[in-house]
Write a protein that binds this DNA or RNA. Structure first.
Lengths: 252, 252
DNA sequence: TGCATGTCGTGCGATTATCGCACATACTGC
DNA sequence: GCAGTATGTGCGATAATCGCACGACATGCA
């Protein structure tokens, strides 16, 4: 490359790490080669380096992420005071609403959970936790995030929209998707039903000042949980109150 | 370096990332230069690369970790099925014991929380969550992890032991520290009081088969919570039952 | 057995990306 | 004005990286 301010080797190594983002169990060297598009020998050396640096570990089935990435995430979470400030607020909101509540932000063209709390009554877990990702276009969380992102991000996201619907209710038309995000921005909250997972619905509200990267607070429940207008108002009230508390997050 | 199978640039870039592990709010370029010991120009280019790859972001106060590291951690957590399998078990145990319960593993010479659950009754949070780190030598979690690690790790950890005690109760003598780990290995659980944080006590039990990296299940409470032998037995019972359930973690 | 396919390790020459000094600038407080 | 610190960047020498290529091994099928 011609760019003198870009360390290609580092970028390639990070590309290799990215291959593990979707929760792949364990990847073999040829698998990583295929996914990354790099040379086989290069992949091997990068992986060797990543193992020696503690980011990957070898297993019988191939390479996999090591606990190191957790420590790194701990740095991110610690900076935002997630454990000390955010978690109690989420817990309180979850109990008040008797619903799952989550704080999310954006990582490139997807939403990612930053923290989450479930009420004590919750028997089943959906399996979403810190670090879980959701699509931006077809969830309440994602649309609220898009509503607070730059037009460039919106355009990129639309350009990269999926070709196959998640469910029978998934909105596929780009114009109507844009409109949904627009609506979220205008009314200050977003609600989505059935589009990503049948039988599930979500409500999201913005958090804090419009910092560099937006944050949203959201709750998830079964499809008809938000059908009653008064009930929805209560949900929005609780979420917004919590959002104010969280809004004081350290934005150094 | 002479090693042909080691990408130095990648390692340096990861070193830069490591500077943010301790939850630093935001680091300036000179700060990172000091911490990493690399050349100023190199740090600048590596940081530029990390920003362009989405791992760091610029803020008025300097550079800081971006949400990307969360997505990466999500890959790790997803592989272990933390959200789907582990979280419900931890929640159940936390409710049974009415105490905080956590799953932890080892990252180099420290313990790191993989998942955590607090009972509904918990009003205050200690601020420890996923990705939080603890010392290996002076916590129940850490000693139980050491008891299941290789002698090399034990030796390294002892060699790098802190020079200053955390509290007045911190055990500083390497021989007695070794003995404490030995005891944990022999009796199949570990209990520590006051050594890391005054007024706090922890109990830890091993999880699963001795895989590559050990996992432990632990609970934390106020100092005298485990003084009663019958009470301790109940805690151990619940933890061990939960550990069996978690033991089926995907170890691909 | 022979051949195809896939994986893995690695030697090595050519290339080029990286290093790190160096110069230049700007801002602070005194 | 000056010392101290942060920042941007040009450039030559060096050393690290690339990626082809060769050899080895295992597996499956005809």
């Amino acid at each position: 490359m011609s760019d003198r301010d870009f360390a290609a080797t580092l970028a390639k190594g990070l590309d290799v790490l990215s291959c593990f983002e979707q929760g792949a169990p364990a990847l073999s060297l040829p698998e990583i080669t295929r996914r990354s598009g790099l040379d086989r020998a290069v992949v091997r050396r990068l992986c060797l380096t990543l193992v020696r640096c503690g980011y990957l570990e070898e297993s019988p089935a191939g390479l996999r992420l090591a606990s190191r990435v957790l420590t790194l995430a701990g740095g991110y979470l610690g900076r935002l005071e997630i454990g000390r400030v955010v978690q109690p607020i989420l817990r309180h909101a979850a109990e008040q609403l008797d619903m799952e509540v989550a704080l999310a932000t954006r990582d490139r063209l997807q939403a990612v959970y930053v923290d989450r709390a479930a009420p004590a009554s919750a028997r089943v877990t959906l399996g979403f936790g810190i670090g879980s990702t959701l699509p931006l276009l077809h969830t309440a969380v994602g649309r609220m995030l898009l509503a607070r992102s730059t037009p460039e991000v919106m355009a990129e996201t639309l350009a990269a929209r999926p070709t196959l619907p998640y469910t029978e209710a998934t909105e596929m038309d780009p114009t109507r998707l844009s409109a949904a995000v627009e609506t979220a921005r205008d009314q200050g909250y977003c609600i989505a039903r059935d589009e990503f997972e049948l039988g599930a619905a979500g409500v999201a509200v913005p958090v804090g000042t419009l910092a560099q990267t937006p944050f949203v607070l959201a709750t998830t429940a079964s499809v008809h949980a938000f059908d009653d207008p008064a009930g929805l108002d209560r949900v929005l009230d609780v979420l917004r109150q919590s959002a104010i508390g969280i809004g004081r997050m350290r934005e150094a």
